[in-house]
Write a protein that binds this DNA or RNA. Structure first.
Lengths: 186, 186
DNA sequence: CGCCCCATGTAAGCAGTTACATGATTAC
DNA sequence: GTAATCATGTAACTGCTTACATGGGGCG
């Protein structure tokens, strides 16, 4: 499992509290790994037990205290080893595809509506990614070493969303092609 | 949750035993929904309790008996309602992206190797999909109504794999661009 | 006054994974 | 004779989700 590693990666990027992490897992790292705050707090305890992260309690005025977590030397070592271990393709569970697969069970406009609904969701997400690209990666010829890697993950997201839009287009077109040459009962 | 629905969709397509389903979830429906045989058997019991599927025991010679499951009227109704309920974008958990995000922690060739490894995996999967396209959907102008929908899911897969290959290409290129204009310490 | 934000947690329940179990048949 | 295929399951464990809990501060 690699929620542990997703958290380590996030902490290496920037030391954070559990609360901060929960927010980051709702953006940036969260674009390719999701976790709720409950998962995160539990995992942070485990990571502390393993000695992969260190905690420092930060007292705050007019705010609850927070624990700031940083990746330890051991944790960084573990991360490096994990990155070097080849991994499999991520598994997908795509509800929309399950629906489309059984699309013949419902009136065609039901499926078309659902595809259009998803087109809008993917459009919005694409726009979100493009905004990040414009804000943080506008000078693409001069990316710092670390930025290159983060930019690549963003590019993956942009591509994915764009490709979804293309598929939606293709799908609506195919569904509206006249169904020629069916051996219809006469 | 929709393992239940993935199973219903699979059964509507073709009445099957738990064992058959487990195999199907290793191909066809399994390209966008995965489940082990244990999950499937458990879910089949639940679906039977709900009355969404009917079981018929088939005695076989020289083989263990098997239970053949078919979707009941109630199950079909439920499926239709489920398809009509708008759903969210599927969540992704992409280990490779987590690794790439923290790519600066390891020597560059480690990341390049991992990207190349994934390029090969996606190439193989693309080929698998293209074979299915050639075998079952060669006559694309004359698809039956149901086939259109299944073809669309295949197209989604083909696009996804192709897009992965394009990203891998792009990634390797970006990583090998000379890092110009870094304010390097002199 | 009520709601949202900050910050961390417990508890219960469901989903998913891994290992183990059985027992006959067929293929090498 | 050893392994794979057919066919179905139990048990234990880990991971994930949902709900609930606390308590101060800021905002409208």
């Amino acid at each position: 499992m690699s929620l542990a590693h997703a958290i380590l990666v996030s902490l290496v990027d920037c030391p954070s509290s559990g609360y901060d992490l929960a927010k980051k897992f709702d953006g940036s790292v969260g674009f390719f790994w999701q976790a709720t705050h409950q998962q995160i707090y539990r995992e942070l305890h485990r990571l502390q037990d393993k000695g992969w992260i260190d905690a420092e309690v930060i007292a705050q005025e007019s705010r609850p205290d927070k624990k700031l977590f940083t990746v330890s030397g051991l944790g960084k070592q573990e991360l490096q080893q994990w990155i070097a271990r080849p991994c499999e393709i991520n598994v997908t569970k795509d509800e929309l595809m399950v629906k489309v697969f059984a699309g013949h069970l419902v009136p065609q406009d039901v499926i078309e509506q659902e595809i259009n609904h998803h087109r809008k969701l993917h459009e919005a997400r694409l726009q979100e990614y493009l905004d990040i690209e414009a804000r943080f990666f506008s000078d693409r010829a001069n990316l710092r070493h670390e930025q290159k890697f983060q930019y690549l993950t963003l590019r993956r997201g942009i591509r994915l969303e764009q490709d979804w839009l293309d598929w939606c287009q293709e799908a609506i077109e195919l569904l509206n092609e006249p169904t020629t040459a069916i051996a219809a009962p006469q």
